[in-house]
């Protein structure tokens, strides 16, 4: 290794950090989109390991950069293989992720299952409150999912009636999307609401405003829109 002074070490560290950042973002992107709270056990392990492995060559310039790359490559390929196997083989998925567990059935807390999950009633109540349920009485079924989140079905008397229950017809306006953000048309959003740029310009003309003056514009398939203009400085 050539003689390196402290300034060079810092530059090497910066360059390595940029390279590893780009590489890890790419690796995580390949593994798929998930929020930390939605991670399955294997995904959480991989995330923790990758962050740990990548940090070593970033901090220690004596460590070859390749010693960070190779384990990340192996971990990503293992994760991709595991996710494919989990998709194809149910027993493998069950072994890695476990199964959803019913903890409230017909309004009755299943204490054995709670003990098995080492889940306290306080933990359960917290999860229920986060779903806007403040009394266990309201719950008919409660399932602890494999990623630790809780799914709840309320008792019929506490459920909100929907349009079908009330026998009413609601006009389908598809999806309302943001079509202009800070003076720029978002083509992907236009596709979602089945509109074209020309439709947007027609609306802007009818409102006698220009594209650059629009801070936010939402539009749905029925042509219902909402425009918020930029504040004048």
């Amino acid at each position: 290794m050539v003689n390196i002074n402290i300034g060079d070490v810092m530059i090497i560290s910066i360059i390595r950090t940029i390279i590893l950042y780009a590489f890890i973002v790419l690796a995580m992107r390949l593994m798929g989109k998930r929020q930390i709270s939605d991670l399955q056990p294997n995904e959480l392990v991989i995330t923790l390991l990758i962050s740990d492995i990548a940090a070593i060559p970033m901090q220690n310039t004596s460590q070859p950069l390749i010693s960070g790359f190779v384990p990340v490559l192996v971990l990503v390929s293992m994760e991709i293989t595991a996710s494919v196997l989990m998709m194809k083989l149910a027993p493998f998925r069950k072994m890695i992720c476990g199964s959803p567990v019913l903890v409230i059935s017909d309004g009755k807390i299943l204490q054995d299952q709670m003990k098995r999950l080492r889940l306290t009633t306080e933990d359960l109540c917290v999860q229920l409150r986060q779903q806007n349920i403040f009394s266990i009485e309201e719950v008919q079924y409660c399932i602890v999912e494999t990623n630790g989140s809780v799914s709840i079905l309320q008792k019929p008397e506490y459920r909100q009636p929907n349009a079908q229950d009330m026998n009413i017809t609601i006009e389908d306006n598809k999806i309302e999307t943001v079509v202009i953000n800070d003076g720029k048309i978002l083509d992907n959003s236009l596709k979602l609401c089945q509109k074209t740029q020309q439709d947007v310009y027609n609306i802007l003309n009818s409102e006698q405003t220009e594209l650059n003056a629009v801070f936010l514009m939402t539009l749905d398939a029925l042509g219902k829109y909402n425009i918020i203009l930029k504040e004048k400085k």
């Binding site: 390949l30 490559l73 192996v74 390929s77 293992m78 991709i80 293989t81 996710s83 494919v84």
Partner: peptide, 8 residues
């Protein structure tokens, strides 16, 4: 993705 995994 499985091909990418194998390549990696």
């Amino acid at each position: 993705r499985i091909y990418i995994g194998i390549i990696f």
